[in-house]
Design a protein around this nucleic acid. Sequence first.
DNA 1: TTGAAAGCGCTAACAT
DNA 2: ATGTTAGCGCTTTCAA
Lengths: 330, 330
Amino acid sequence: MPTNSIREVATKAGVSTATVSHVINETRFVAENTRQKVIHAMDELDYTPNFAAKTLRSQQTFTIGLVIPDISNHFFTSVVKGIEQNLYQKGYQLLVGNTDEKLELEIEKLKTFQAQQVSGIILASSAEHYQDIEPYLNLNTPIVFIDRIPDGTSGDYISVESEKAVYNAVQLLIERGHERIGMVTGIDTLSTTRERINGYRNALVHSRINVDENLIFEGDSKFTGGYHAAEKLLTQPGITAMFVANNLMTIGACTYFKEYQITIPEDIAIIGFDDYEWAKITDPPLSVIKQPVEKIGEKAAEALLHKIKTDDSGNQSIRLPTELILRESC
Amino acid sequence: MPTNSIREVATKAGVSTATVSHVINETRFVAENTRQKVIHAMDELDYTPNFAAKTLRSQQTFTIGLVIPDISNHFFTSVVKGIEQNLYQKGYQLLVGNTDEKLELEIEKLKTFQAQQVSGIILASSAEHYQDIEPYLNLNTPIVFIDRIPDGTSGDYISVESEKAVYNAVQLLIERGHERIGMVTGIDTLSTTRERINGYRNALVHSRINVDENLIFEGDSKFTGGYHAAEKLLTQPGITAMFVANNLMTIGACTYFKEYQITIPEDIAIIGFDDYEWAKITDPPLSVIKQPVEKIGEKAAEALLHKIKTDDSGNQSIRLPTELILRESC
DNA sequence: TTGAAAGCGCTAACAT
DNA sequence: ATGTTAGCGCTTTCAA
């Protein structure tokens, strides 16, 4: 590619570089006639603006950094899809960083992104407290949190009404006659975990059911966590139902039950978190709490872009509603 | 952030900007004494190099562009995970672009990435022929193809032995007594589709079974494609088994069967493509061809980095082996 | 062993 | 309605 510069275009079109720049960016009036000449010249030369030069000059990278714990988790990738779509339309690029749920990696990637002067950051943090990451946050890089909101977070966030969601799910289990209901939570330092446990407790309390701490089991948010939690929980006498707080752990738990021929929902009823296409073809089809995944991404992108453009520090935080989808596992 | 430049550092350290630059990049000898002064000055000023300037001047971004058709498809995200890990370790960033399987979007993103002067590109193309995208490929931007390899591709690629994989799967179906075996393919312009169909045909031919074109159905690589293909295929007399050429379509097909109470494998046996955790808890657990997903990503990253560094145009192409995992759907 | 300075390609203030 | 030009922060050639 004969990497042409704006200068070549200008020469070819018989105008100044300023005019070319203004045609490209629509940043001041250019006579239609001249405009056409410039456009033609750009076409001829197959011109593409040099991004680095543009960035250097304008101090704007038009790049967003996305930091998430697990890029192979369908929940996050669905969110990413929503983000990418929205961002691309508006001329922004997406830089992606995986943290594998490790705070140190999260911090590293946050640093790198900021050194690159990203226009903004979208973060699903593994930090328990906002102070854990605060020192690494450049105050003039806009940031929006998604899914997890570290304790004490002052910025914007896009999340979901998880407490309410779990409350309703457990409530339903109770209505269907269950009293000894197990709970498999995610990593215990995450805000989402706290919220979901609260929903669980409140539902129980509301129905005057005793909260038995032995029924609450901390998984690691992954497949094995769900698997082992299921194993443990089954040793609890009288347990007839369980709520599992994320998608991977739900699969883990179901796998355990399948292996030991424990039938759902007869032996144990289950409600999981996150809905996917495959949830309809499991044995039995899974009842789940569905999050508006792509919407979370879109809203996050919108909120971030808003912050970037208006420099308005007003709070854009949203809690999106979830949906309880009843199939045959409870 | 008091965006300091190399000039401030130089002044503070009492040296020239050249020296500072050389200290940072270790690109020529600097007396230890001087070096310390510079390092100290950088610390004091909390200096971070300006990425855009560096890029503009050196024409190197240390950024890799990844272009994939569907970032919410678990196959691709598992690959991405492998890529990201590998790249970060070596100091590269990852820019992600989704194409939604649309060639025009693919081209657009390819252009944008190149305009940003990415150091290299990893591409899962939707193009049928290499010529479709060739005009948009900057010859001095190293590129490696993954998964799909457009017809006539001259560059490096990392893929799997899909023809052989499908051959073996269909072979197995035949051994188990099936003769009328349906095939649900992906989008017909994709190389992966052609390879998989070839594997299917060859297996049939090898066992002297007539290839009935009515048994080959083109899906769209998505859920609905599998769903409708299942519907159509079932109208074919005597059909007792089917092979489905990707993960989303497998779910679609199974969903159809479940809805119409067609039991697997009694009424129809199934083998799908791609293995996931949830494949064990479907009804029945799915027999599938498993691809080494993260490995594809790692190899792609390695191959690309090799090309970038050595500028060696030698071919790094690899076909990774797959594994046939037998569960209860066939 | 180090410095001076040109210039990467672009934007935008200032001119006209 | 358009042109001139300084300069963004860095790397690197040439010179000392």
